[in-house]
């Protein structure tokens, strides 16, 4: 089957970003959330993101308008029933995800492929909440979606070959590279990056180096665009904590035991870029405020 009509359920940061990317590549895409206000917010968020890219010459005014015209913002789940592919991007909570997949299973055309954008949960387990586990698959986009070239395509235990192939072709048509993953906690990306983030936090807590020196060392030392602490700030420290706890539970490996400093920041409501403060401080546009480390939480140094 050929995927042409796509829907995203859950218009948070990831949902909006995925919709923007899919719309940009020429597909009609429905972006659904529960209320009209949330949908309105989503529209503003997509527009803001497109404006930022326009300012950086990444797209043109015409391309921005075309992309926006391809995204149908709606609060009615019924609109997605005839889509070829529905990607859920609701919060990273197994119960919430299972509920939405089960609802979609009942609503959608039997041929519709249901995908989850989870970064840590078991696709096999999520698929079990539907009556079509062969048509359920993981499709893990990484943030920022328009810039990151890779997508993890996660086979659940029962995902069919046909489903995998259709989704693989779809990912290719987005000009992205799909990597094939066999369902396992954290897949490859989350599983491998999480211990790095955790160790960076531990190093900071132990006073090994300042936050900006830790980030500079890793960024320049290994050719990454951002250091691990800024990376965590951008992902959202609450999200990082949740996925770390999940991986610690599932894998039982101590490298996933959340750093106490991470817990402390989350409890204080310092969740990273989205609250303007995490390990570093950020302006309203999400740019790092140079040299402004969040010194209150500098561990030994603070």
């Amino acid at each position: 089957m050929r995927i042409r009509k796509v829907a995203i359920v859950g218009a948070g940061t990831m949902g909006c970003s995925i919709a923007e990317n899919i719309g940009e590549k020429g597909f009609t895409v429905f972006l659904v959330d529960r209320t009209d206000e949330l949908v309105e917010d989503a529209k503003c968020r997509v527009e803001l993101s497109l404006n930022k890219r326009l300012e950086k010459w990444g797209i043109t005014e015409a391309e921005k308008r075309v992309t926006l015209s391809r995204i149908r913002f709606t609060s009615k789940l019924d609109d997605v029933t005839t889509c070829d592919l529905v990607i859920e991007a609701v919060q990273e909570d197994p119960d919430v995800k299972k509920k939405i997949l089960s609802d979609l299973d009942k609503l959608c055309h039997p041929q519709t492929i249901l995908a989850s954008n989870t970064s840590t949960l078991s696709i096999t387990e999520l698929a079990a909440a539907t009556l079509r586990p062969e048509r359920v698959i993981g499709l893990h986009f990484l943030s920022p979606v328009t810039r990151v070239e890779v997508v993890e395509i996660v086979r659940g235990l029962k995902s069919s070959e046909e489903t995998f192939e259709a989704v693989k072709r779809f990912v290719k048509s987005l000009d992205k590279v799909g990597v094939e993953i066999h369902d396992s906690p954290g897949f490859v990306t989350t599983r491998l990056i999480t211990p790095l983030l955790n160790q960076a936090m531990n190093a900071l807590m132990e006073g090994v180096a300042s936050a900006s020196d830790i980030d500079t060392a890793i960024r320049l030392g290994f050719g990454l665009p951002r250091g691990p602490l800024e990376m965590a700030d951008r992902m959202g420290l609450d999200t990082v904590l949740t996925s770390m706890e999940g991986l610690f539970r599932d894998l039982g490996d101590f490298s996933y035991r959340p750093c106490p400093l991470l817990r402390k920041l989350v409890r204080a409501g310092h969740l990273g870029v989205k609250t303007g403060q995490g390990f570093f401080k950020y302006d309203e546009e999400g740019n790092l405020i140079k040299e402004e480390e969040n010194l209150v939480y500098q561990g030994a140094k603070g």
């Binding site: 890219r53 950086k56 010459w57 990444g58 797209i59 043109t60 810039r147």
Partner: peptide
């Protein structure tokens, strides 16, 4: 800028 952004800058 990324390569794609630079490409767009020069071409568009």
């Amino acid at each position: 800028l990324t390569i794609d952004e630079m490409d767009s800058l020069l071409n568009k």
